[in-house]
Design a protein around this nucleic acid. Sequence first.
DNA 1: ACTGACATGTTATATAATAACATCAAAGGC
DNA 2: GCCTTTGATGTTATTATATAACATGTCAGT
Lengths: 165, 165
Amino acid sequence: MTSPMHHDGFCCAAHSGSDSMAAILETAETRARMQGARLTPVRRRTLEILLHAHGALGAYEVLEKLAAEGYGTQPPVAYRALNFLVEHGLAHRIRRLNAFTACAQPDHDHRAAFLICEKCNSVTEADADLLSRALDQAAQAAGFQLDRATIEAVGQCRACQDAPE
Amino acid sequence: MTSPMHHDGFCCAAHSGSDSMAAILETAETRARMQGARLTPVRRRTLEILLHAHGALGAYEVLEKLAAEGYGTQPPVAYRALNFLVEHGLAHRIRRLNAFTACAQPDHDHRAAFLICEKCNSVTEADADLLSRALDQAAQAAGFQLDRATIEAVGQCRACQDAPE
DNA sequence: ACTGACATGTTATATAATAACATCAAAGGC
DNA sequence: GCCTTTGATGTTATTATATAACATGTCAGT
Ligand SMILES: [Zn+2]
Ligand SMILES: [Zn+2]
Ligand SMILES: [Zn+2]
Ligand SMILES: [Zn+2]
């Protein structure tokens, strides 16, 4: 057990945001349905694993957990579930980390930016609305037809700045 | 020979921008010096290879070329040269592509954004000043101390939009 | 010439991702 | 209810990307 002290599916403050984990899963279920897709057990469990994780998780970390619970033991099992979640807006891929994280606002389409702390490896999904607009402009200026974008910031989170040393 | 028709080190319009390749190499040389680093033969050649490439190049593609010219044949040779160039502002790493590209404005420090065409795989370095400011704001709002960022847009370049189908 | 710092090269290994195929389960037509 | 079609799950095997650890070589300063 990696996170010993949790109740109701939560383990820390970071996981007690506006949406509860149950609510997110509910949303996920609905959202997948609407897109004509099924949130099958592996997929759902993969999402839970991401939701429960502190930072982002690598595919092989996810695979380990899935395997330990009786799901498949080979890489494609994890990659397929993760790709499904990403494609359906339920998770994001963090390219700089070769890792995945559950989407914090799965209820609506959005372009996300990520704040990656170099000290504690936390990954925070930030509102990228302003950013997105600036990016649209930059793209337009270059005559580029923008489809989607990756925005990943690296630095130090508030907690780590406050922490001594 | 990959690019049969080139003169003066150039092979196409995309390579005939404001800075000539020779000028960029000159700048690179100077810039490295100023940072107390040496633009050695492998490093310089690696930069030339990137400058000469159309899209971004993977480390192993670069390695192939280096090896063919009598440099080392093993991955660290390419990775070291590429990392050197990135660390000294002479190249950028494109995470989405697991690839590298020569910096288009090596004469000054900047945060870059990249426009990646899904059709022709071209990679264009865009001005990210506006973007950078928006990102700073977003980070600040989250109490995040921003160090550096990756901004990569995916879509269709102008040429590919105009091209029929 | 000697020394210390850095550069280059190697072998070996770690890490991340996909291809190709067999089997199984759900959804829909009849 | 059966059959067919599609999609999901699992496997083995392979490919792709990146780094660790170490030996050798180069060069500037003394
Ligand atoms: Zn999200
Ligand atoms: Zn932190
Ligand atoms: Zn640049
Ligand atoms: Zn294009």
